[in-house]
Computed example of a mutant assay.
Amino acid sequence: MTALLKIVLGNRRYSSWSLRGWLAVKQSGQDFEEVVIPMDTPEWREKKTDPALMPSGKVPSLWSGGIAVWESLAIIDWLADRHGQAAYWPTDDAARAFARSMAAEMHAGFTALRSQCPMDVCARYEGFRFEEATRADIDRIVTLWTEARDRFGAGGPYLFGAFGAADMMFAPVVMRFVTYGAKLSGTAASYMNAMTAHPWMVEWCAAAEAEPASWRIGKYEDKAREYL
């Protein structure tokens, strides 16, 4: 049977936005097809201009028949409209407002962390030196995680109890903290442990480890070594 949904992804090792979109499709409970295009390759440069794969020239993009949705937050909302808002967003008004605000802040912000610490779910660095602006981003993220867990997280180990859209948006941050050795404690550390143990996160990281060596992108690893 042909899957009704298709998601176009970049390398699992590096593509933070692909991880968000993929988790959103997993949460829908629907069968889906995955198309993985290795970044920074001739295949990538060819296919990123194909509107039948990547309408924006970026990943992820989600296809349902002839309907295309791109940008991870748009993919989350499109799937929530069709497969149940409660699977993605809290039902409580205050919790939902906080979750949507967190997700939007993640979508638009934390540029220092993104710049200094590209996602690489397979790497581990000891003694990584975070720049001041990156530390400020980390502190803000820890504050958000802690407040969400303290106020709204009684129903489970994730930001708003059950796994949802806010967790999807912060999943690549969790992996960045693991990769670059961010030292967390208390509520934030417990949340990070819950996320790394989530079966879908384990599945994603295992698939990243299995990617061909030819898909590795040296500039990300070279950048990390500048801060060791």
Results as ranks from 00 to 15, higher is better:
Arg225Gly: 05
Ser61Ala: 14
Met192Ser: 14
Ala210Asn: 11
Phe110Cys: 02
Ala171Ile: 03
Ile7Asn: 03
Glu209Tyr: 08
Ala133Ile: 08
Ser64Gln: 15
Pro51Arg: 09
Ala189Cys: 07
Ser61Val: 05
Met175Phe: 13
Trp145Met: 14
Arg225Ala: 15
Trp204Ser: 05
Gly29Phe: 10
Trp78Thr: 05
Arg13Pro: 03
Ala87Lys: 15
Ala194Lys: 05
Met175Tyr: 09
Ala165Leu: 04
Glu126Leu: 10
Thr143Gln: 14
Ile7Cys: 09
Ser61Cys: 12
Val142Ser: 09
Val36Asn: 00
Ala99Lys: 04
Asn11Lys: 11
Tyr14Gly: 06
Asp167Lys: 02
Phe152Cys: 05
Ala188Val: 13
Ile75Glu: 06
Leu23Val: 14
Asn193His: 10
Thr134Lys: 08
Ser16Asp: 02
Ala165Cys: 05
Ala213Val: 12
Tyr14Ile: 01
His107Gly: 04
Trp17Asp: 07
Val142Lys: 07
Gly109Glu: 11
Ile141Gln: 05
Gly65Tyr: 09
Glu211Pro: 01
Ala95Trp: 12
Ile217Asp: 02
Thr196Asp: 03
Met54Trp: 02
Val121Ala: 10
Leu23Ser: 08
Asn11Gln: 10
Phe177Glu: 01
Val202Leu: 13
Ser214Asn: 02
Gly218Trp: 08
Glu221Ala: 15
Gly155Glu: 14
Val69Thr: 08
His107Trp: 00
Tyr227Glu: 11
Pro38Ser: 01
Gly164Gln: 02
Gly84Tyr: 06
Arg135Gly: 14
Ala136Gly: 08
Trp78Ala: 10
Asp50Ser: 04
Cys122His: 04
Pro42Val: 00
Leu4Lys: 13
Glu126His: 15
Ala24Gln: 09
Ser115Trp: 10
Leu19Asn: 05
Arg20Thr: 06
